[in-house]
């Protein structure tokens, strides 16, 4: 781990849930028998009691399988989802960079979306216009910049999103597997931009289900499962704990040093029961 900087985000006993609407057809019979219609609203409790302190200049990785609550945690850290219980305090508002991010304004050109994104981020029109040529070059999609956004491929969209999200130096940048869709050249450029942000004492949080990527670059990793942090700390060790669990096998080396106390206790109990 690198030098411990001062905290930049403090998450205490965080609980986050979100509501989805189920598309269940109402059965004819249930109408006839006046049985209760199926509940169409569903509350998903995605993050359950997360504690985390992120520090200045840290490259932090978040790993977990699909549906582990990673994206929900990031959304809450961006202020996109309300907090049910607990609290998140941040030095400045984190910026989210996600592949799931929808088009900003599908009907208008990529160029105009850059301008709109820049204004929304808080730049002035003058500042954006001064930067615009550089930005368009950074997006690197050629003439397509003047085509409507809805005609973009997911890779082109990711390039535009990345450019908007890093328009100004963010103190905290959250990256949600956004780089996976770009081509090699774009990934290289994005990594360079992330390094610049880190060098400027920004904190980067990278979310992935690819362990190798995170182990290579991160200072620390947290493993999230079913909305709870199971392990936290040294990337190689946490990565092994996660992989062992995902592949349903024993870890190749002792990973107990990174397991969170609750998870450690649960594992111990499990082993005792087996014996």
């Amino acid at each position: 781990m690198t030098d411990i900087g001062e905290p930049i985000a403090i998450i205490e006993d965080l609980h986050v849930s979100y509501t989805t609407y189920l598309d269940q057809p109402r059965r004819l019979r249930s109408l006839a028998t006046k049985a209760e219609a199926p509940r169409r609203k569903k509350v998903v409790r995605a993050v359950k009691g997360v504690n985390l302190v992120l520090r200045k200049g840290e490259y932090f990785g978040l790993i977990g399988s699909n549906g582990s609550g990673k994206s929900t945690l990031l959304a809450a850290m961006t202020g996109l989802l309300p907090v049910d219980a607990g609290r998140i305090r941040v030095k400045s508002r984190p910026r989210l960079l996600g592949v799931g991010v929808a088009a900003m304004r599908g009907g208008v050109s990529g160029r105009l979306n850059l301008i709109i994104g820049g204004l929304a981020v808080g730049l002035t029109y003058k500042e954006i216009n001064e930067k615009l040529d550089d930005l368009i070059e950074f997006v690197g999609i050629g003439d397509a910049i003047d085509r409507p956004l809805k005609s973009y491929s997911s890779g082109m969209r990711a390039r535009l999103n990345f450019t908007v999200a890093t328009l100004t130096q963010p103190d905290i940048l959250l990256v949600d597997e956004a780089l996976a869709v770009g081509d090699a050249a774009f990934i290289a450029r994005s990594k360079k931009r992330i390094d610049e942000i880190l060098a400027d004492a920004g904190t980067v949080i990278m979310v992935s289900h690819n362990v190798d990527n995170l182990i290579d670059s991160c200072d620390r990793i947290a493993w999230l499962k079913a909305g709870e942090i199971r392990a936290l700390g040294d990337p190689t060790t946490v990565g092994e704990a996660y992989l062992a669990d995902a592949e349903n096998r024993e870890p190749e080396f002792d990973v107990s040093s990174v397991l969170t106390p609750e998870h450690f206790e649960a594992l111990k109990q499990e082993q005792q029961e087996e014996n």
């Binding site: 411990i4 985390l52 309300p82 609290r87 998140i88 305090r89 941040v90 030095k91 508002r93 397991l259």
Partner: peptide, 23 residues
């Protein structure tokens, strides 16, 4: 096994922090 607990004096910096997910 204290993982990632707040270090001494960490909370001293938090006066100007923004609380997210609130009105």
């Amino acid at each position: 096994m204290a993982i990632n607990e707040l270090a001494e004096g960490d909370l001293a910096h938090t006066d100007d922090f923004i609380e997210l997910g609130q009105v």
